[in-house]
Simulated scan of single mutants.
Amino acid sequence: MGHEILDLAGLATPMAIRVAVTLGLPDRLLGRAATAEELAAELDVAAVPLELLLAHLTSLGFFEPTGDGYRTADRGRELCGESLATVLLRLDTAGGRAELAFVELLHSITTGESGYRRRYGQDFWADLAAHPTLRASFDKQMDLRFRDQIPGIVAGYDWGRFATVVDVGGGTGTLLTAILAACPGTRGTLVDLAPPPGLGDRVETIAGSFFDPLPPGADAYLLSDILHDWDDEHAHRILARCVEAAPPDGRILVVEPVGGRRASTAIDLAMLVIFGGRERRVEEFRALAEPHGLVLDAVVDLAADRCVLEFRRATA
């Protein structure tokens, strides 16, 4: 039993996988064989340590030895190409860098604060702003995360009820454009720090933060995977901006995992360590919304691990 616990808790294997993906080893050795010395020369890394890495991952079935060196085994094919998994595993992407903040889990558990800030000296969002390549990788990560879920998110809720939708912090607009494609009578506004151009004639893009005033008068304000990235203080500020902009009969729509319902315990810890946030439970959402005069009208289970929570003004 002791060895099983050590194997489960050991960091050698998860870090070896992440380093191999960061170096692109599964792709380099897909359909070809090469020695550690040849790969080291290609990558400009040390040959002996690279041999140690390949030997360990070979023992786990990710690579296999041949007469000409190593090549990617069937199990290792899962680490090839560009997918959500490989984007999150790479140590030079926003997701991979964020995962390393788990070394500060003790700090987060004892203080309730983000481990990311302790490790990197600034919070996740400031880090993205300071490193455009991290920001680009984060946008790609979110697009890949939503790609398989968007059909279920769009089909699982009556978005066509709303003539106008403001996607608050909507990134590259992937979800908003899918909603509009399914709802010809709906127009959208995408608000993000650096929204992309050319999303179609029914989409207006506005550069801005959800901590600043939002475009007023829309039927619905969509917060997709936003509130769980923030502690209660910041979540209140975001909701306040939505309520400030919404008309009396407007709706605030929150799409994200809900604690105890559609969220895993591992994601809960990730939200804590990376952002100082959490996957709130339904009652916590109600408590968060109440000071803003909002009541929870409905909770609808969507694709995979997400729900949509629909809020309205208590007086509407």
Rank of each mutant, 00 (worst) to 15 (best):
H236R: 06
R237E: 10
I238F: 04
I238A: 11
I238P: 00
I238L: 09
A240V: 03
R241Q: 15
R241D: 05
C242T: 07
V243D: 05
V243R: 14
V243I: 09
E244K: 12
A245E: 13
P247K: 03
P247C: 09
P248H: 02
D249E: 11
G250I: 04
R251M: 00
R251I: 02
I252N: 08
I252Y: 09
L253N: 01
L253G: 06
V254A: 11
V254D: 13
E256F: 06
P257A: 08
V258R: 04
G259E: 02
G260C: 12
R261E: 14
R261L: 15
R261P: 10
R262H: 13
A263R: 01
T265A: 14
T265W: 10
I267D: 05
I267P: 00
I267E: 03
D268M: 03
A270F: 14
I274G: 02
F275R: 02
G276Q: 00
G277K: 05
R278W: 06
R278Y: 05
R280P: 08
R281W: 07
R281H: 07
V282Q: 15
R286W: 06
R286P: 09
L288A: 10
E290S: 14
P291V: 07
H292K: 01
V295M: 09
V295S: 11
D297K: 05
D297V: 03
A298D: 05
A298V: 00
V299K: 08
D301A: 13
D301R: 12
A303Y: 03
A304D: 15
A304V: 14
A304N: 14
D305I: 10
D305C: 07
D305T: 14
C307L: 05
C307Q: 10
V308P: 01
